[in-house]
């Protein structure tokens, strides 16, 4: 980078704004993940349904949600809903919903994989002692599936977190938005975006650490980690 004058001071000076952006990024990604968990669990249960047409419908919904680029989805949810159906969402709400739909498609597969990985005999044994279908699922199958689901769900969340950087295009004041805005005035895009990158690395590493602790807690009674 010939002749480029680094100006890292800008980063230090804009820390309060970046911090604000970081909070928005976290908020929109956590909202998105919460929606993804609900949407994904519904799709996964649909895929495992005993009714063929519910299974097919769920597969279609999952394939559809997974195929749309997040960028396009954002425009559909934010502008499309507003233009076509007069549903006016805030940029934040639209961002969270778009992340929820994309993440939900991945979470559906994560849930399904986790549930299928639990030995079928577990469900049989739970039913055999007289538990209802839903109790057998909630008390016996799901707690075992969660050990498999958690690490993969963390991956999905990290993906959503990075996906959340796109929400700046519809004007959510996330970290990228802040970085872009500040570098417009100070001509320091390299410094600002690098700062965002470092923040994301720190976030991802912390999340991985938390996930590790959570997994250790879930693995009680099982020494294979």
């Amino acid at each position: 980078m010939d002749g480029y004058q680094y100006n890292w001071n800008v980063v230090w000076q804009s820390l309060p704004e970046l911090r604000q952006g970081l909070i928005i990024t976290l908020q929109v990604s956590i909202m998105g993940m919460s929606l993804a968990i609900v949407f994904g669990l519904l799709c996964a249960i649909g895929r495992l349904s005993q009714y063929g047409y519910i299974r097919k419908f769920s597969v279609a919904v999952i394939d559809f949600s997974r195929s749309i680029p997040l960028f396009v989805l954002l425009f559909w949810v934010y502008y499309g809903l507003s233009l076509k159906f007069s549903i006016n969402l805030t940029a934040f709400q639209a961002g969270a919903i778009a992340l929820g739909i994309t993440g939900g498609a991945y979470m559906a597969e994560v849930f399904r994989g986790g549930i299928n990985a639990v030995d079928f005999g577990q469900r049989e044994a739970a039913l055999a002692i007289g538990l209802t279908q839903s109790k057998a699922f909630n008390l016996v199958v799901l707690p075992q599936a969660i050990r498999i689901i958690v690490p993969q769900a963390v991956n999905v969340y990290v993906g959503l977190l990075k996906g959340a950087t796109i929400v700046s295009v519809i004007g959510v004041a996330d970290m990228i938005y802040v970085a872009q805005y500040i570098s417009l005035n100070s001509f320091t895009p390299f410094e600002m975006y690098s700062a965002v990158g470092v923040a994301f690395i720190a976030l991802t590493v912390s999340i991985a650490g938390l996930a590790f602790l959570l997994e250790a807690k879930l693995n009680k009674g099982r020494s294979r980690g």
Partner: peptide, 26 residues
Amino acid sequence: YEAKLPTLRAEIGMVFQHFNVFPHMT
């Protein structure tokens, strides 16, 4: 129909070839 079955199963004990004990419980 499915809601009735547990009343039958609760009166019938079953033991399996592969034990099927619940590994997440003591």
